[in-house]
Write a protein that binds this DNA or RNA. Sequence first.
DNA 1: CTGTATCCTTGGCGATACTG
DNA 2: CAGTATCGCCAAGGATACAG
Lengths: 116, 116
Amino acid sequence: MVKRRKSNVPPPPSDCPLSKCMRLLGAAWAAHVIWYLRQDERCFTELQHDIAGVSAKVLTNRLRKLEREGVVERLTRPTSPPTVCYSLTPVGQELSAALTNVVHIAQRLKCAQVAG
Amino acid sequence: MVKRRKSNVPPPPSDCPLSKCMRLLGAAWAAHVIWYLRQDERCFTELQHDIAGVSAKVLTNRLRKLEREGVVERLTRPTSPPTVCYSLTPVGQELSAALTNVVHIAQRLKCAQVAG
DNA sequence: CTGTATCCTTGGCGATACTG
DNA sequence: CAGTATCGCCAAGGATACAG
């Protein structure tokens, strides 16, 4: 029997929301969505235009998931034709701020150093 | 022709390291790996033991990717039998700190509110 | 405009077995 | 101990067409 050092790091809090959160944000285009909602609300087509290359299906999917998690808010305007605007919730804003920190660090990762 | 509001949010910096970074961290068990390396270095088996449920294949894969990005460092000790220790690089430490912020926010997401 | 439905392909991940 | 090799599945995502 090998004497194994026990980790003195406490287990991830509760049922590991971190993991779920990271997978949510790690999904394709998720970070982009939050990024482009940072300042003002954007409607569906605007987002699709902002985020070049995303398909409607995936964009819808991302927005739905983020909405269910309370990150973004969906607001329907009864105009003609009807438009839908998405914005960040307060929690979403905080998340966005936290991501800003990650951006700075991410730029120092190897993958960001294109000119090796 | 619809007058479309141009986004006043600048595009994601450079070639979007944020996205790559988030996908890196969003991969299965990636957050766990960083979490358990927060305080002290851990060797392969210790990590596999810490992170209940991860397979050797995936753990190796995660460590390799994180190593290539400069997040974790691999240190081989020429003991008998040889052991390999993993630790966070300075950048990895910063990333870990940034993730701590995300944890706090993640706990306020809907997915974390088990008792709805 | 804002999506949904469907098909199809890719690859992420788990499980298992094997190696230096 | 610290991995690699191989297989197989399934979900994520792209493309396209359709709908309210």
